[in-house]
Design a binder for these strands. Structure first.
Lengths: 207, 207
DNA sequence: GTCTATAATTGGATAGAC
DNA sequence: GTCTATCCAATTATAGAC
């Protein structure tokens, strides 16, 4: 907190504009995908001109990268909260179930950041994907650890490879953002529970 | 068969070039995605110049559309063959299991056309997706019917919505092309059976 | 049928006024 | 901080020679 820093409300103003741009970018990226998302449209949604974006960001890819990173954080936070609610001593099966329901709910009902991340990560340039490799791997590893914990405590079947099933589960959950609509036929909580019942109970040891 | 048609070997020659272009396009589309696949690179792989493509096709999107359509046909054929082999009187559970193994195998080991379809369909222009809406819906409906048949004959659980689980299953299977490598850690037949065990046995009625 | 050359368009990025 | 004007690179598509 040095005396040379800007006045508090001036910081907030600059931050607000930056946030407005990121929200606009998340909206456009989620709807159009990486390549079709133009700076002109992002600026338009943010109610400014394309050139003005460069005062706040160095490049299109810098904007995209931050949107995707925020999307991953949102998802991670939602899962963490659900796992804390479930408790450390719940079975691996029950914790995986809770994580699936939380994640599916988060990516459909929450901000556009998670949707943008899911839709655009694979389409984005290699440099962007490399910069996000650490949080992405951490995200994937979280699912692997959940499954492995269930295999260890005997609540999930052990004759499948946790790393493979984790990838499969993530893809299955992510697909929901491609077709689910808020005003559609299915209640998202209903969808999330069907997923959990199929994938998680498919892993369950029945007895 | 009018007398004005071209000589047979001339037809074959023209067809071969056309096929070479489609194969080159499938290769590039599968590796780079829709937007990053340039006509220059497609032409280069097909050993010709970009301008020459226009003798055989009207536009980039015409090429893309045909590649994606062929990809869907390949996948459909692989599934059909497996279902025929399983037989009409196999249980819904066993037929779904056979279809999953066949499809996962097809999209990883077969031509680039299926991979291009899986990677590029969502990124492709709206007009392209609309033109392919009928075969796509037919593909999805095939999985729904497989699941519903199993629910009717009592071999699959009925407390989930077949349309939702079909979409989930398709996405889970498609995700394999994103990470599986021929020379990687996992045998694809092994992966396919793990998927079938998890998703299909997750739907199974245990007793 | 294929090539070379080029038109036409688009979209990311920069410069300078205000 | 934002705008307007403009540059520059890339890419689809066309024209005409061979």
């Amino acid at each position: 907190m040095s005396p040379t820093e800007l006045a508090p409300d001036r910081i907030r103003k600059g931050e607000r504009t930056r946030t407005r741009i990121l929200e606009a970018a998340a909206d456009v990226l989620a709807r159009k995908g990486y390549a079709a998302a133009t700076l002109t449209e992002i600026a338009s949604v943010a109610k400014m001109q394309a050139g003005s974006l460069y005062y706040h960001f160095d490049s299109k890819d810098a904007i995209v990268e931050e949107v995707l990173a925020v999307g991953m954080e949102h998802a991670r936070d939602a899962i963490r909260a659900a796992l804390n609610a479930a408790g450390e001593d719940a079975s691996g099966h029950d914790r995986l179930m809770a994580a699936v329901v939380a994640y599916v709910t988060a990516i459909t009902l929450d901000s556009d950041f998670t949707k943008a991340n899911i839709r655009c990560f694979e389409e984005s340039p290699e440099a962007t994907r490399e910069n996000l490799a650490v949080p992405l791997r951490e995200f994937a590893n979280g699912w692997v650890r959940l499954i492995e914990a269930g295999q260890r405590d005997g609540s999930l079947r052990s004759d499948v490879e946790a790393r493979v099933i984790a990838r499969m589960t993530i893809a299955a959950m992510n697909s929901v953002v491609g077709w689910w609509r808020f005003d559609g036929e299915f209640n998202i909580d209903h969808v999330a529970r069907m997923f959990a019942r199929t994938v998680v109970d498919g892993l369950a040891i029945h007895g």
